[in-house]
């Protein structure tokens, strides 16, 4: 006896099954299905969820909470600030301007902004801000050194060698050891002014200051209203000639108001009133 068997199904794959099988074996399709499609689904779902206003709020809240937790970590706290390389007044000013309330978290501390703020001080040439281990904010300040005192329409100011303002001054006595320069444009020719001052060392007792004329050349103002007018170029050499003449013939001790060296080839002098009258009398006598 034998059980009646149902006719066997065809074992051959159908055309569609065959094609699907081949499709599945093709590498591009496989990668697309196994990687790109899941990634697209996950990414799309996440994007869709994140685009809802409610979930955005949730994300924001979670972010805030996490940030708050981080901020409160004791390891992230900065407890004090040290300023190195600045004068006590400047240090005080820096502390006042920054107005940090310690302890503050590192996360809230914007070192770049601090750098910008401190650099804004006239007296600060360069500043480096960093957090040192143990929770302290360290500011390394390089101060500008005043080289001249400058009088202009606005008052008196201390300038460094590059012409940057270091501080304002109330009086000339604030920096008696610094040379005085005056007039507009003087701050742009400070190296030349310093060279002239150095060359005029023999006249130190008599020199009142340098005056910039027409923003192009210097006058040396001496006590007693005497003025040495220097050329645009070769000012130091011209001054040295004047000093040589002074040494040879006591030029500056005489009644001369202006020594004009603007044309170095032809030094010119303007006599004082008495000398001029005397000269006139002398010429009259010579004429007879």
């Amino acid at each position: 006896m034998c059980a009646v068997r149902s006719p066997r199904e065809d074992y051959a794959p159908s055309r569609i099954a065959y094609r699907v099988n081949r499709l599945w074996l093709s590498p591009v399709f496989r990668v697309a299905t196994l990687w790109l499609l899941p990634m697209a689904v996950i990414g799309g779902g996440a994007g869709l969820w994140a685009s809802q206003p409610g979930s955005q709020e949730l994300i924001q809240n979670v972010r805030m909470a996490v940030m708050a937790r981080m901020r409160d970590q004791p390891d992230f706290q900065v407890k004090q600030m040290a300023v190195r390389g600045a004068s006590p007044e400047l240090t005080r000013e820096i502390r006042r301007v920054l107005a940090l309330e310690f302890p503050v978290s590192v996360i809230d501390l914007d070192l770049d902004a601090i750098r910008v703020k401190v650099s804004a001080f006239d007296a600060v040439q360069h500043v480096e801000a960093h957090i040192v281990l143990g929770g302290a904010l360290m500011l390394d300040v390089t101060q500008r050194a005043p080289a001249v005192i400058w009088r202009n329409a606005g008052g008196l100011a201390l300038l460094d060698e590059e012409g940057h303002r270091v501080a304002l001054a109330e009086r000339r006595d604030a920096a008696p050891e610094l040379p005085l320069i005056a007039a507009a444009g003087a701050e742009r020719a400070i190296p030349e002014a310093l060279a002239i001052v150095a060359a005029a060392a023999p006249l130190r007792d008599r020199m009142r200051g340098l005056v910039r004329q027409g923003e192009r050349r210097w006058d040396v103002a001496l006590t007693g209203g005497q003025v040495i007018q220097l050329p645009e170029t070769g000012a130091v050499e011209a001054l040295e000639r004047v000093l040589a003449m002074d040494e040879a013939g006591d030029l500056l001790g005489r009644d001369i108001r202006i020594i004009d060296m603007r044309n170095p080839a032809r030094p010119t002098i303007r006599l004082g009133d008495e000398a001029f009258a005397y000269l006139k009398t002398l010429r009259g006598l010579e004429k007879g």
Partner: peptide, 18 residues
């Protein structure tokens, strides 16, 4: 054609290559 599909599919399955 069915016989061909059968063998090709089986061989592809073994090779794991289309």
């Amino acid at each position: 054609e069915r016989a061909l599909r059968t063998v090709v599919q089986a061989a592809q399955k073994m090779a794991q290559v289309r």
